[in-house]
Design a protein around this nucleic acid. Structure first.
Lengths: 244, 244
DNA sequence: CGTAGGTTTGACCGCCTTCAAACTTGGTGG
DNA sequence: CCACCAAGTTTGAAGGCGGTCAAACCTACG
């Protein structure tokens, strides 16, 4: 891989705190590649050959069973995916496909495991990365089990806006069909939910979404940092013991 | 905590490979406690004070939002829970409550974090534990998104049997109301699904479930190791059943 | 026994899916 | 530039899965 790409990787939480020798060692055997859109990088059930790091573009995590398939998540730069399969040396539970032309760095899983054993700072970082991934999935599952589809859509819009500094105007970053699958509904139902949500402080034209009344939208979504994302402005009292 | 409890902990993947000084150090500040049934050990939103290790009994992980709540998982001995919140030093995403009288070892989260930084073998073990937890949740979410409720019930029965060495006869280990919530349905709907599944190679009387035709049941469940769990499951040194 | 909590059953309703068709949208080539 | 096509989206109608509500039925336990 090219030298000018390494700093991007080095900035990642996963690589930031590892020792320089370990990093350089990994980088020597890593290689960077640019893939076309809609390419299946990883197929569920296969074994983990490479840790993937997405540098540019975006990647969709999908799962399939018995003829159905569904979108489980989307990975944006700069972050890693399928770390868990690499650590466990077990089959992928999800497939991964590029949504657009994407640049990806691949590091042989065996070398990652060696580096983990050798560099405890690296292991710590991997642990934090995995813990965050775990929590992301807990939140995703809570969202699916606790909210109905209109509420999920409202929360999604609100959260997309929140990520852009509470911008009132956002653009749906994905094809609606895939967004529907991610949110656990059919494209038709998403279409109807989009129509329905416009009675609650939102106007949608195509992929342009404008929040006209945040409070009304929030009344539907009932946003919750324990579902929608990490706490940024938490007002948490001191930890307290529940039992004596 | 008592000395005779330490070997049980030491056998855990999380503690098996850590250095003896680190282990002894942690054990000095850990303490063991037995809790009554239906006690809320952890409330979602609070911060992680203690890493919990369940030694005996069973614990239910639940999530709540906007007046609803749902069962997200069940933890059996001997394993840890809420490791991710401890590692991240962030609020719990789920609550935990004892299902029965349960013995639990609690280790201050701050000390766990210190030990993680100090002992790289320990960090490696924590990483593997987290990776397994992550994969458990991916599987759970796939189950919810890809199967309908009858298929989920069939797969659940098949998997419970599989864990008991493909025993044809199993006992539902949880109250049906909680099983329904775990499987993502209402108690009423579980009741109907139980009736329906008896046309497909299963007879159910109370909590007694007998598989009369495994192939027919599998035709409904379409079991898949990428959803239902690895064929080679964990070694549980303690008996599984625990209904009094 | 009698009560309380859990389970089952029935009736009804609504969310969501399915199927089908019309309608956009974007890209391509005449 | 426009015609055309393919893919995606929207709309409509119909139906099913699952949820809600209410009552009856266990079952455990005091």
């Amino acid at each position: 891989m090219r030298d000018d790409e390494k700093p991007n990787l080095r900035r990642l939480p996963l690589f930031r705190e590892m020792s320089t020798p370990t990093f350089d060692n990994l980088m020597q055997i890593a290689y960077s590649q640019t893939f076309p859109p809609q390419l299946e990088l990883i197929r569920q059930g296969e074994y983990a050959d490479f840790l993937h790091v997405i540098i540019d573009g975006s990647v969709e995590l999908r799962a399939a069973w018995n003829g159905h398939d569904t979108v489980m998540g989307v990975v944006h730069p700069v972050s890693t995916f399928i770390l868990a399969a690499c650590v466990c040396d077990e089959p992928y539970l999800m497939s991964a496909r590029t949504r657009e032309r994407s640049q990806i760095v691949m590091i042989p899983a065996a070398d990652v495991r060696v580096a983990l054993r050798r560099d405890s700072d690296y292991a710590m970082a991997a642990m934090r990365e995995l813990a965050e991934g775990y929590r992301t999935f807990v939140r995703y599952t809570k969202n699916l089990k606790l909210r109905d589809s209109l509420e999920r859509l409202a929360a999604y819009i609100l959260y997309q806006s929140h990520k852009l500094d509470d911008a009132p105007c956002i653009v749906l970053p994905v094809e609606k069909r895939h967004l529907a699958s991610y949110l656990g509904m059919t494209p038709e139902n998403l279409s109807r939910s989009i129509k329905a949500v416009q009675d609650h402080g939102v106007t949608v034209r195509g992929v342009q979404v404008t929040i006209t009344d945040r409070a009304r939208l929030a009344a539907i979504a009932v946003p919750d940092p324990l579902i929608d994302g990490p706490v940024t402005t938490a007002v948490s009292p001191l930890p307290q013991r529940s039992v004596s």
